[in-house]
Amino acid sequence: MLRIIPFEIRKLVEQPMILLFFIACLSLNTIYILTAGLDQSYLNYVQETELKTGNLVTSDFREKLSNQSTSRKQQRLLTETAELENIFQDYSTEAMGQQIIGFYKIQGAVAERMKTKYEKLTPVASELGEEQAALEVGAAGETMSFFTFIRNRLFRAILGESLIFAILLGLYGSTSERFTKTDMLVMTSKTGRKTQISKYIASLIITSLFYIMMVILTFGIFNHLHPIGSLWQTSMSTLFHINVYIPYLLEVPFITWQPMTLVNYTILSILLGGLLVILCHGFNFLVGIWTNHLFRGFIVFVVIYVVFLGLEQFIYQFGWWNMHSLLMWHPISLWRVQGYWFTEMGPYSIIPWQESIATIINLFLLILGGLLTSKFYATKEVK
């Protein structure tokens, strides 16, 4: 069946909607970048200043900065760095955990597991304290704006577009013969049904290429319009960057499960996002096989998505944290909490690196679902 894959890829690429969707997404991302409202001039000033003062806010940094020529940007930078301190020196992650547990009124076994989670975060905070990560100047007061735009807006847009593409191509890949009315001809034989393997591989290749190209081109355009230079090497845990939990706006330090710079965090997010795209494509390919119709398969996905979101809100309102913690392992939840990936994730996780572990578990479930579907499909009656 491997020799059929190039022909299946060609059939997909020849669909005009694929190119149009790609161009539309890239255009939207470009507009998004152009209208980001980031203060590039201040970032440039801070980076130029770092060459003379160093990137850690110490007394020496403040002294050198004070001796620089007076300007509005200099006064702003002096103000923003005036009271910065190494908060991770003797920082209590247990107290941070108690704050989050109390804020969300989490009780029972989930609260106990979360206490254990925050105890395991203590060595990370100690390491951040030794590295003086909190004192890294980054882009000073603009650090939060740049970091949030990159990880929580720009990448979220890329991931969302790629997941939509994965949904549609996964469904189309397994139901395309229905559109050309060749399903009765192809799928009534054992050999013909095996072409679904080729269709899966072909649609997965196109989906992966879409995601990879969208990442490369979008970040390429961003870096061209907003060259952020050394900001890529700034710690994610600088004091100028915090984790904000909504809807009640609880603010805590941004602590990842191992010290990371912006570039490390972005690369890991891209890799985990790629696995989510593979999951989304795979599960919807299987839905297409079971429903044997693109539109019906899409309706099934929408119903599951809407019911899941409604159930999550219902459970959250009633404080059923045991059920809430189980829902956080679902791929939909993994996408929704993308902005908290690789951190302690507050009320959205009960163990370290939960988003990564949950993704791996879902990949195993996808493989299991594929095996079960292949047995069903081998004897399915084509209508």
Score class of each variant (00 low, 15 high):
Q107M: 09
S189V: 02
Y340P: 02
W290T: 06
E80H: 11
L272E: 12
Q258R: 15
G220Y: 08
P331C: 01
I255G: 03
T35A: 08
E119G: 08
T379E: 10
T175H: 04
F301T: 05
N264I: 00
G160Q: 04
H241L: 06
Y104D: 10
Y377L: 06
F146H: 03
M114T: 05
V382F: 07
Y265C: 01
I212E: 06
I158N: 07
P253G: 00
Q317G: 10
T49F: 04
A157T: 13
I158A: 02
T191S: 14
L20K: 12
S145T: 09
P16S: 01
F314D: 07
L121C: 01
M260V: 04
R156T: 14
T70W: 13
A95E: 14
G229F: 02
Q196H: 15
W335C: 01
N223H: 14
L185A: 03
Y172A: 01
L249G: 06
E130M: 04
Q354D: 06
A111M: 10
L65D: 10
I360L: 12
K52P: 02
Q317L: 13
M187K: 13
F21E: 00
R72M: 13
V46M: 08
N86Y: 05
K199N: 04
I350H: 07
E48P: 00
S208P: 04
V57L: 00
T148M: 09
N243S: 13
G346L: 02
C25M: 12
E85H: 15
P123Q: 07
E85Y: 14
I351R: 10
N44F: 10
I87M: 05
I367F: 13
E142P: 00
G310I: 04
N29E: 11
P227V: 07
T379D: 07
L209Y: 08
F21P: 00
Q47G: 12
I205K: 09
Y45A: 05
K105M: 09
L121K: 08
I351M: 05
M260Q: 14
S333G: 04
P123A: 00
V287A: 08
L363F: 08
I350Y: 14
T195W: 02
M328T: 11
F61A: 00
I255D: 12
D60F: 07
L65E: 08
M114V: 01
T79H: 15
F298G: 07
N284Q: 15
Q75Y: 11
I242A: 06
G297F: 01
L372Q: 12
H330K: 06
G138F: 03
S92P: 03
L271K: 11
I206H: 00
L276N: 09
M345W: 05
A82L: 10
T291M: 11
L272T: 05
I267F: 10
T256K: 07
